[in-house]
C-alpha cells in the first residue's frame, strides 16, 4: 500500500470538499474492494475519505411507500433489521447472502452499489426493487444507474447518501454462489409490484439487467411455469473460468423459477 492522506469527515459537505480539492481522492466506505486493491498496489489514491463517521449516512427507515437505507449501512445491519425484514424480506435475505460474516459487518450498501461489481448482489436488489439511488446532488433511477462493467451514472466526486426501495407486494432473491469468492455466478431478484413485475439479474452480464420477457410472462401469470423457455440469450452473457454463458443462461432460468416458486 502506498502512502496517502487519510480524512475522516463528519458531514457530507466536508467529504465532498476533500474530493473536489485533492488530486486523486477516493471514497472509503466499507473498503471490501478498495482495501485489497490498495494492498496489491493496484490503486494509488492521494487521499482516502473515510465515510464511516458521517452519521447521516447510516441507518434504515420507512418513508411512505418506501424503505430508505443509508449508504453506509453494513450488510449485516440490513440482513438483521426488523424494519427491512418486515418491509422487504427479500432484501434482508439478499444482504444476508453477501460474502461471509466479516464482509457483511464491514461492507456497505453504498459501497457495493457505487463499485458496481458485475457479480455483486445488491445491484440485482436495486434494479429488481426499482430503487432510487440518492446522492448528494440528485436522485438516479435504478434503470439508469448501472451503465457497464464497474461503471455507474455517478459523476466524479458524487457521493451516494442513501438508496430508496419501493415496497413490492412480494419479492424473492435467489443466488448461485461462487464456491471460492461467494459472489453471485448468477443472482435473480423477482419482485411483484401488483401493476408490474420486475426481474433483475446480477452476475451474468457486465452489470445488472432486467429480463423483459420474464417480466411480461410473470405479469400475465405469476407462476414458475410461465418462465419456461424464457432463459436469457447466452450470447449476451459472461463467460469466464467459473461458468460459461450457456450455463449462466440456464442458471438464470432456474433461479428465476425458484424465486417465483418461493413466493407464488
Amino acid at each position: 500500500m502506498r502512502n496517502f492522506d487519510y480524512h475522516r469527515p463528519t458531514d457530507i459537505a466536508a467529504a465532498a470538499r476533500v474530493l473536489a480539492e485533492r488530486e486523486d481522492a477516493k471514497l472509503l466506505a466499507g473498503g471490501m474492494t478498495l482495501i485489497p486493491t490498495l494492498k496489491q498496489r493496484l490503486a494509488t489514491p492521494t487521499d482516502l475519505v473515510d465515510l464511516g463517521r458521517i452519521a447521516a449516512l447510516k441507518g434504515v427507515r420507512r418513508e411512505g411507500n418506501g424503505l430508505v437505507i443509508g449508504a453506509m449501512t453494513c450488510h449485516a445491519d440490513v440482513a438483521t433489521s426488523p424494519v427491512v425484514r418486515e418491509a422487504i424480506p427479500a432484501l434482508a435475505s439478499l444482504a444476508g447472502q453477501i460474502g461471509d460474516p466479516a464482509v457483511r459487518h464491514r461492507g456497505t450498501i453504498g459501497g457495493s452499489v457505487a463499485n458496481a461489481d458485475p457479480a455483486a448482489d445488491y445491484p440485482a436488489g436495486v434494479v429488481g426493487l426499482d430503487a432510487t439511488v440518492i446522492t448528494d446532488r440528485r436522485e438516479i433511477g435504478a434503470d439508469d444507474f448501472f451503465t457497464g462493467l464497474f461503471e455507474t451514472a455517478l459523476e466524479p466526486g458524487e457521493i451516494i447518501t442513501a438508496i430508496r426501495f419501493l415496497l413490492p407486494k412480494r419479492a424473492a432473491y435467489q443466488k448461485f454462489r461462487h464456491p471460492a469468492s461467494g459472489y453471485a455466478v448468477a443472482g435473480v431478484m423477482v419482485a411483484d409490484f401488483g401493476d408490474a413485475v420486475r426481474v433483475a439479474v446480477t452476475g451474468a452480464g457486465p452489470s445488472a439487467f432486467r429480463l423483459d420477457a420474464m417480466e411480461k410472462a410473470l405479469g400475465a401469470s405469476f407462476t414458475p411455469g410461465a418462465l419456461e423457455g424464457l432463459n436469457p440469450d447466452a450470447l449476451e452473457l459472461l463467460t469466464d473460468m467459473h461458468a460459461s454463458a450457456e450455463y449462466r443462461a440456464h442458471l438464470v432460468g432456474v433461479l428465476a423459477r425458484r424465486a417465483v416458486a418461493a413466493i407464488a
Binding site: 461462487h178 464456491p179 471460492a180 469468492s181 473460468m241 467459473h242
Partner: peptide, 10 residues
C-alpha cells in the same frame, strides 16, 4: 488464472 482465494475454490 486462479491466483487468489477469490478464484481458487478451497
Amino acid at each position: 488464472l486462479t491466483g487468489s482465494f477469490m478464484d481458487y475454490g478451497m
